[in-house]
Amino acid sequence: MFLVETNSALVATKMLMTKPVELPPIAKRLKEAREALGLSQPELAERVGMSQQGIGAIEAGRSIRPKKLRELARALGRTEDWLLGEGSDDAAATPAAYPKHEPNAETGGPVRLPRQRIPLYGGAIGGSDGRFVLNGHKLKDVLAPPSLEGVRNAYCVYQYGTSMEPRYFAGEVHFVNPNLPVRRGDFVVAQIMDEEGEPPAAFVKRFISWNSKELILEQYEPRENWTSDEPEAEKYILRFPSERVVSVHVIVQTGRE
C-alpha cells in the first residue's frame, strides 16, 4: 500500500512537471496577427523600431507589456486591448500604419499607336546656315505624333546643319503644324524662294518678326556670311524680303523618327 501511494505521488509530480506552460495572450495574438499579414519577425521589428529578439521575446511569453505596444498595434492593424487579450476579435481592427491598398487603376488592352501617317520632306543641303531643299519631294511617311493627329497638311522635315545647336541637332525630325498662327519666339520652318529660280530653300530657325518688308529669323550659331563690318546684333540674324517668303510654319514637336 505504501508503495502504491508513493508511485502515485511520483506520477502526479511528473505530470505537474510536464504540463505545458500557458503563454500570455499577447504572445499568441501578436504571432497570429503577424502571420496573418505575412510578416516575418525581422520585418515587423523593422516597422516598429524594435529588434527581432524583442519580437521573439514577446511571442515566447517573456515580455507581456512591451514599450512599443501602440506601434505594434498600429503595424498589425489591431487594438492595444486586443493584443493584451482584453478585447474580442470583433474589436480587433484599427487603422493600420501600413495598410494594403487596393489598385486604383486597371490596365486595359494594348496601347493603340497613332494610325495617321504624315510625309517627311527634305533634300540635300543647298547652302549655308542649315539651308535645305523643300520642293515637295517626299522622303517617306512617318507616324504622326498625337499633337498632329487629324491636322490637315501636317508634315515633318529633317534638321540639317548645326546652326540651331544646342536647341536642335542634325538628323532630328521636326513635326510641323502649318495651320497655327506664328508668334515671336516660335521655332519655325520658313520656305524661301531662291533669287536665281532654283527650288525653294527652307530654314529651321527662331521666328522674330514678319512684316510687309521682310521676314526676320534668328539662329544660334553666327551667320556664315556675317562680317565684322556689320553690327554685332546682326551676327545671328537672317533677313529675307517678304516677296520671297513662301511660308512660315510652326514646329510643334521635335524628336527622332
Rank of each mutant, 00 (worst) to 15 (best):
V246Q: 14
A96R: 02
S8M: 12
R74E: 12
L84Q: 14
I251P: 03
L120N: 03
V4G: 11
L217A: 05
L120H: 08
M17S: 14
E102T: 07
E172I: 04
P146C: 00
A91I: 03
T13W: 07
I26N: 02
Y160E: 10
E80L: 06
N177M: 06
L180S: 07
I192K: 06
N179F: 03
A96N: 08
T18M: 14
S163Q: 11
M15A: 15
I58V: 15
Y155E: 00
P110G: 07
E198N: 15
E149I: 13
E32M: 10
L84C: 12
G108P: 00
Y158D: 09
L238P: 04
V246N: 13
I237C: 08
A190K: 03
P199R: 11
A124G: 04
V188R: 03
R117Y: 00
E5D: 14
N177Y: 07
V142E: 01
Q53V: 13
M50G: 05
C156N: 02
R74S: 13
P95A: 10
T107Y: 10
L72T: 08
D89S: 14
E149Y: 00
T107G: 06
T254R: 01
K19S: 12
P114V: 06
P181T: 11
V151Y: 03
G77E: 08
K68H: 12
E214Y: 03
G54K: 10
V157P: 01
D194W: 02
T6I: 13
R47H: 03
L16V: 09
G127D: 09
P66V: 11
G197A: 09
V204K: 01
E221P: 00
S147W: 00
E5N: 13
N153V: 00
A144L: 02
D89Q: 09
F132N: 02
E214T: 14
P166D: 04
R70G: 04
